[in-house]
Design a binder for these strands. Structure first.
Lengths: 212, 212
DNA sequence: TAGATTGTTAATCGATTAACAATC
DNA sequence: TAGATTGTTAATCGATTAACAATC
């Protein structure tokens, strides 16, 4: 496979393919066609084929793609093989939910620790250590952490964000409902609940209108 | 404003404008220009203007948009005024985090209750009732609930989804890492952690490569 | 071979950006 | 008025889809 520049749209669809492939039962045929994938996921087959072409050495006409191999290729492409260490700021309910979510390991994400203003107050059942926010920078430096997850209330998000950047963080996953100002070279991925909700309520509004 | 068909891309940006407008301190000037908004959010000013034109009666040249009015227009357009009732399936950590998240009220979302296989086992501190999953359909019918939120492990997601549809649900917010098959007319909004993570790790991979 | 499936090249579609006229 | 800002019309860009040739 020639490594071309990959577009964000393609990148966002890849995890979906992988998840579906993984969900197939053990006994499934060794090969899977783009057509089959497309049908299962309700997508166009040309699009699936083009996407797969970005990450795979290619399938075989009439047969399809070697399933195991395809899963490996996507995993590798997405960097699920080499784990990424991350730290999390804000050990509230959402923060704990994320820390406790086992699925992240599959994606190569490893949440090392959490930081909070009140580390003691939080649930002591947490599997990962919760430190005071003042320890943030030294921890990130010594553990060479590059990814930070923000799960604090919106009003503290920018402050926390600045602290993360000062600690050498290069990628930020933001769950706080707030826009973050960052210098160039830092990527912010906004997990935007409000956005999803907007799409959903618009659909419901349209439904209601149709009923009338 | 003439109500034109709105594209999903525009729709997704609207909550961002609203959030920023709300975040402005009380004393701020009564008018705000698209230029100012664009700069604050790091967007193109033409795009902002076009987006606002979809929801607003229009700003005044040289002056901008009446701030209060603009906020109202966006809120109304997004349906944040009339609350939407929803129920949630899966009262685990994530489910509880969502139930406890006050921000949703601002978005007009009201999570009435949660359903789970083991309603008793869960945190009794929950503000909302947690019922056994068998109560789902009758509850949805009597309360005329149209939106369901799925926060169960991936392997149960499709089953839960089918139950929701059988209960009259029209819009599904899916936090489970699983593809859902639904009939036409039902909207599934997939809150895709894996997708966001893919974008983030790709950024980090690119960073590492640059360093070398 | 015949036919299913792949991968590529061209056409379409939609969304973003640029240029410009209108307005207060 | 002059200039900032709006809204619109045209140009560009990117992504999706369609058509087709290649392959096993």
């Amino acid at each position: 496979m020639e490594r071309k520049e990959i577009s964000k749209s393609v990148l966002k669809r890849l995890p979906g393919y992988l998840a579906y492939l993984k969900s197939l039962p053990e006994g499934t045929a060794t090969y899977i066609s783009a057509t089959a994938l497309a049908n299962a996921l309700g997508m166009g087959e040309v699009q699936v084929r083009k996407d797969l072409a970005m990450v795979s050495d290619g399938g075989r006409p009439k047969i399809g793609y070697l399933r195991e191999r395809l899963m490996e290729d996507i995993s590798q492409f997405l960097g699920y093989d080499n784990t990424t260490d991350a730290i999390l700021i804000g050990a509230g309910k959402l923060g704990q939910a994320l820390m406790g979510y086992k699925g992240f390991q599959e994606y190569g994400l490893n949440i090392l620790a959490a930081f909070d203003e009140n580390p003691d107050k939080e649930n002591p059942a947490a599997k990962r250590p919760v430190y005071h926010i003042s320890k943030l920078e030294s921890y990130c430096r010594t553990h060479k952490v590059l990814m930070g997850i923000i799960t604090v209330p919106g009003e503290y998000a920018q402050k926390v964000c600045d602290q993360l950047i000062a600690s050498g963080i290069k990628a930020i996953w933001n769950f706080a409902p707030a826009h973050l100002d960052v210098p160039a070279g830092i990527l912010v991925q906004h997990e935007n609940m409000a956005t999803s909700l907007a799409v959903l309520s618009m659909h419901l509004q349209a439904q209601m209108k149709d009923k009338k």
